[in-house]
């Protein structure tokens, strides 16, 4: 038997990992676009579209993997829309990102109403249509051995496969961006595209590749929301996570590991928010629910105020690349 406080720690840690996963996947996706020099405010919209696609396709085909693949394709198509507007046509990156968010916020419910007579939701998914939690070997035995064993069984294990993907994404992104030639070229396209071009490399192609990576990760982020964290798509289920991911990217100085840390910070604020509701505090009494739900947003603003912009923003971020 373990004491109440230890159970609490296990529950909160597991919930932080789960809440951080969509943020990490979205932020790493944003990282690949922004290190290539393309500002991406469209994370929210892509995640929403991907969540809806994953749930709809999974509901129709009964296969979670097919749903996830479709989500990746849709998110990548939206990234290509961003590519056309901002890289190919040299349009405004901020406005294009917002256009994708608002387009998705309108198009997704429109399609949801048209396809499923459920008032804007997708049909609830059965276990076959979901990405179920993985159980680590010997979990059953470990969970009877005390705190460490329970940690192994219910925090390290018993999670969706996409959680492992998310936490492996930071080291993988570090390896790709800092240890490969392609990563060096991609970062250079975000710092000094003119120099990249004069070295005989194709800036437009590099930014295209960055945006494809971006679409893949946002497809995973959206798929996690509707296939793993929930059993189907519900209205506006991203609820600002795409913007939190951008804030995490800024706080993380556009570097994979610090960005992962920032996502964990926001996830902790969110987990805390869930645990604080209804608790009676000495002297304060019960904090009103709206104040508690606002906690992650307040943390984000304070964090952005402290982090500022800094010197580490990719130098060419937000600027259209015009061939000399």
């Amino acid at each position: 038997m373990i004491a109440g406080i230890e159970t609490e720690i296990l529950v909160i840690t597991a919930s932080i990992l789960r809440l951080a996963t969509p943020l990490i996947l979205a932020a790493i996706g944003g990282l690949f676009a922004e290190r290539a020099g393309v500002a991406d405010l469209g994370l929210e919209g892509k995640m929403l579209a991907a969540a809806f696609t994953a749930a709809s396709i999974s509901a129709v085909t009964g296969s979670a993997i097919t749903g996830l693949a479709a989500a990746i394709i849709v998110a990548t198509l939206l990234s290509m829309l961003h590519f056309i507007a901002t890289v190919w046509k040299q349009g405004d990156q901020i406005v294009s990102g917002m256009a994708i968010n608002i387009l998705a916020a309108g198009l997704v419910p429109t399609l949801a109403y048209a396809l499923f007579p459920l008032g804007g939701q997708t049909p609830p998914l059965t276990d076959d249509g979901r990405l179920l939690d993985l159980s680590l070997p010997f979990s059953h035995w470990a969970s009877s051995t005390g705190f460490i064993g329970q940690f192994y069984a219910s925090v390290l294990g018993g999670q969706s496969i996409l959680i492992y993907v998310a936490f492996l994404a930071a080291p993988a992104a570090t390896a790709v961006l800092y240890r490969t030639g392609w990563g060096l070229r991609l970062r250079a396209a975000g710092e000094n595209p003119q120099a990249v071009a004069s070295a005989g490399l194709d800036v437009v192609r590099l930014r295209l590749q960055g945006l494809i990576m971006n679409g893949v990760f946002l497809g995973l982020a959206g798929g996690y929301l509707s296939l793993a964290a929930n059993a189907g798509y519900s209205r506006n289920m991203t609820a600002g996570k795409g913007y939190l991911a951008i804030a995490a990217l800024i706080l993380g100085r556009w570097k994979p590991w610090p960005t992962l840390g920032a996502c964990l910070l926001f996830a902790a604020a969110d987990a805390l928010q869930g645990r604080l509701q209804g608790i009676v505090f000495p002297a304060l009494g019960v904090i009103p629910v709206p104040w508690i739900t606002a906690l992650p947003y307040i943390v984000t603003v304070i964090v952005l105020a402290i982090a500022g912009r800094g010197q580490s923003m990719p130098k060419a971020l937000g600027l259209p690349y015009v061939k000399a």
Binding site: I102, A104, A105, V108
Partner: peptide, 23 residues
Amino acid sequence: INPELVVMVQGLVIFFAGALRGQ
């Protein structure tokens, strides 16, 4: 048809009149 249809039109107008009109 649901009210969000209008939001979709907004998104498209922002895309064409904002992003693609560019600098």
